[in-house]
């Protein structure tokens, strides 16, 4: 391996940029969620902190960071501390392979353009699936270690939910993988640049992916683990302060990750919308727009739908999504052959 300065400095800079952007977009996302849902519900949302409440997320973050950290008496301390970390680390690690654009020279700073993903793994998608499968331990152990009944129920629910929805989620992206003939995130986007976006030939896969992504991130209408009306707050009922902020951050980071995957796999990544290529909008803006659209779907669903019940959720996961995803793979494989 060639360990020169250039191989160290550029990835480090990229990592810093990506993590800053991700954390900032989490802040923006919390603000957007409250504002968008507020407008859907004929109210104003946060208005007090800063103009139009723009500084609200910062105020929230400051509040969470300075809050008292409460540990339940009978909690298992080690596991209680470990759980938020286990939730957030995989969520952030998945951003390693997300290509936010094609290539960049950092505004002419570099001689040779470098990829806009931190790392262009040739098994990018598989990597994301593998890493994100670790994320559920944060929820499971967090619920268990609080030593309280509502969190335990919430943790069991979410673990069962995530385990069962990971299967159709994976199956749904196998169709596009078959068509692109690669596991690399970059390769999938490049495959779409030649033909149409995979959302058209793989429409069913896209629908399944959207539904499963919502379930995977525990968002409404699949937000059973943290169903406020039933389980108070689910697995993080007992958490407060920084640790709660970690769970919160992990949830939003996960939302951004699944949106990024959807953008890359189905919506053509950084490619411009067909017919609008003459606009000369930078690739990263296209990427952000598509991701924003997908994130908007999350909020839209939350404002529209009631919540499923636990057994119904499992039933549609296993009895509907998985068979349809399998049929989709079968048909795709036949067509690709």
């Amino acid at each position: 391996m060639d360990f020169t300065m250039i191989n160290i400095v550029i990835p480090t800079v990229k990592i810093l940029i990506v993590f800053t952007v991700v954390l900032l977009s989490v802040l923006v996302m919390t603000y957007a969620e409250r504002k968008v849902i507020a407008f859907m519900q004929v109210r104003l949302g946060p208005m007090r902190v800063g103009p139009w409440g723009l500084l609200q997320p910062i105020a929230d973050a400051l509040k969470l960071f300075s809050k008292e950290d409460i540990i339940p008496t009978m909690a298992d301390k080690w596991v209680y501390y470990l759980a938020p970390t286990l939730a957030i680390v995989p969520a952030l690690l998945t951003f390693l392979v997300v290509p936010f654009g094609d290539q960049t020279t950092f505004f002419g700073l570099l001689k040779h353009p470098t990829s806009m993903a931190i790392s262009d793994l040739n098994i990018g998608l598989l990597y994301i699936l593998a890493i994100s499968s670790v994320g559920i331990y944060g929820i499971l152990l967090g619920g268990w270690s609080s030593n309280s009944k509502y969190p335990l129920l919430g943790a069991l629910r979410s673990a069962a939910q995530i385990v069962s929805y990971e299967v159709p989620l994976t199956l749904a992206i196998i169709g596009p993988i078959l068509m692109a003939n690669t596991l690399s995130m970059k390769g999938i986007v490049e495959a779409q640049s030649k033909g149409m976006w995979f959302v058209i030939p793989q429409f069913f896969a896209f629908l399944i992916y959207t539904a499963c992504a919502v379930a995977e991130t525990n968002r409404a209408p699949y937000d059973l683990p943290e169903a406020e009306q039933e389980l108070v707050a689910g697995f993080h009922t007992e958490y407060s302060g920084m640790k709660f902020a970690f769970f919160y951050l992990a949830e939003y980071a996960n939302m951004i990750v699944v949106s990024a995957i959807a953008t890359v796999v189905f919506l053509g990544g950084w490619l411009p919308v067909p017919g609008l290529a003459f606009l000369h909008i930078p690739a990263i803006i296209w990427f952000a727009l598509k991701m924003g659209f997908f994130l908007f779907i999350f909020l839209w669903l939350r404002a529209t739908y009631p919540r499923y019940r636990y057994d119904q959720l499992m039933a549609i996961g296993w009895k509907f999504f998985i068979p349809v995803a399998l049929i989709n793979i079968f048909v795709t494989a036949l067509l690709v052959l």
Partner: peptide, 16 residues
């Protein structure tokens, strides 16, 4: 009732 089942928007509409 709607809020309990998770439909948050109806809650605010009805309160209006």
């Amino acid at each position: 009732h709607a809020l309990d089942i998770g439909a948050m928007t109806v809650f605010l509409y009805a309160f209006r």
